[in-house]
Amino acid sequence: MNPSRPTPVEPDPTDKALHRLSCASIIETCTLASLLFIAVPLKHLAGFPAAVSWIGPIHGITLVTYLWLLSTSFANPIFTRGEILRLLFSAIIPGGGFFNIGLFKKKQVALKLGLTQ
């Protein structure tokens, strides 16, 4: 091992899980907004039902992925029960995931400082 080269540090698994959850939250929010504000109006106003057929399954996959990642948070004491409920309800509100960005940043800082909850 070369002493002049620093050894790579493995990222904390909790930090990786938090990053995945935050990305999934934003992606889920974007797909819900595109489904409700682009695809559904195209279907009903322009007679283009294929838009819902394309975006609907994409949103379904992202929603299930987000809920799965959120359910893994129960095993990890990153979030309180109230915060988990907040993250859960934000998934059904168009644009709700954007309100969680501050929470994710706060949790990332707490992890870096070694604080829990």
Score class of each variant (00 low, 15 high):
Gly102Val: 07
Leu32Glu: 01
Asn2Asp: 15
Thr7Ile: 10
Val64Ser: 10
Leu88Asn: 05
Asp12Ser: 14
Pro41Asp: 06
Phe37Asn: 08
Ala51Cys: 06
Ala24Met: 09
Ala33His: 02
Phe89Pro: 04
Lys16Met: 10
His19Ile: 08
Ala110Asp: 15
Trp68His: 09
Ala46Val: 08
Leu18Tyr: 00
Thr62Val: 14
Met1Cys: 08
Gly95Ala: 04
Gly56Ser: 09
Ala33Ile: 15
Ser90Lys: 06
Pro8Arg: 09
Asn100Tyr: 02
Leu67Val: 12
Glu28Ser: 13
Ala50Cys: 04
Ala46Thr: 03
Trp68Met: 06
Ser34Tyr: 10
Gln117Asp: 11
Leu69His: 10
Thr14Phe: 08
Phe99Ala: 13
Ile61Phe: 15
Gly82Arg: 04
Ile38Lys: 03
His59Asp: 02
Ser73Asn: 08
Leu18Ala: 00
Ser90Met: 14
Ser53Val: 04
Leu18Thr: 01
Thr65His: 06
Ile61Cys: 13
Thr14Gly: 12
Leu32Ser: 04
Leu67Asp: 00
Leu113Ile: 03
Phe74His: 04
Gln108Val: 03
Leu42Met: 06
Pro11Ala: 15
Asn2Ile: 08
Arg5Asp: 04
Gln108Ala: 15
Leu87Gly: 04
Ser34Asn: 11
Asp12Tyr: 07
Thr29His: 08
Leu18Trp: 03
Gly97Lys: 01
Phe104Gly: 01
Leu115Ile: 15
Phe104Met: 00
Lys106Glu: 13
His59Asn: 03
Ser34Leu: 15
Glu10Arg: 12
Phe74Trp: 12
Ile78Leu: 02
Gly114Ile: 12
Met1His: 10
Gly102Ala: 14
Asn2Cys: 07
Asn76Ile: 11
Ala33Cys: 15
Ile55Asn: 00
Ser4Val: 13
Ser53Met: 06
Thr80Met: 05
Arg86Trp: 14
Gly95Arg: 07
Leu32Arg: 04
Phe74Glu: 02
Arg20Thr: 03
Asn76Gln: 14
Pro41Gln: 05
Leu67Tyr: 09
Ile55Arg: 00
Arg81Met: 06
Trp68Arg: 06
Ala24Phe: 07
Leu85Ile: 12
Pro8Cys: 03
Leu113Met: 10
Ile78Asn: 00
Ile93Trp: 10
Ser90Arg: 09
Ala24His: 07
Lys112Asn: 09
Leu87Pro: 01
Ala39Trp: 00
Leu69Gly: 02
Ile92Met: 13
Arg86His: 10
Ile58Pro: 00
Gly82Pro: 05
Leu87Trp: 01
Ala17Asn: 09
Val109Leu: 14
Gly114Gln: 12
Phe74Ile: 03
Leu111Tyr: 09
Val40Tyr: 01
Lys16Phe: 05
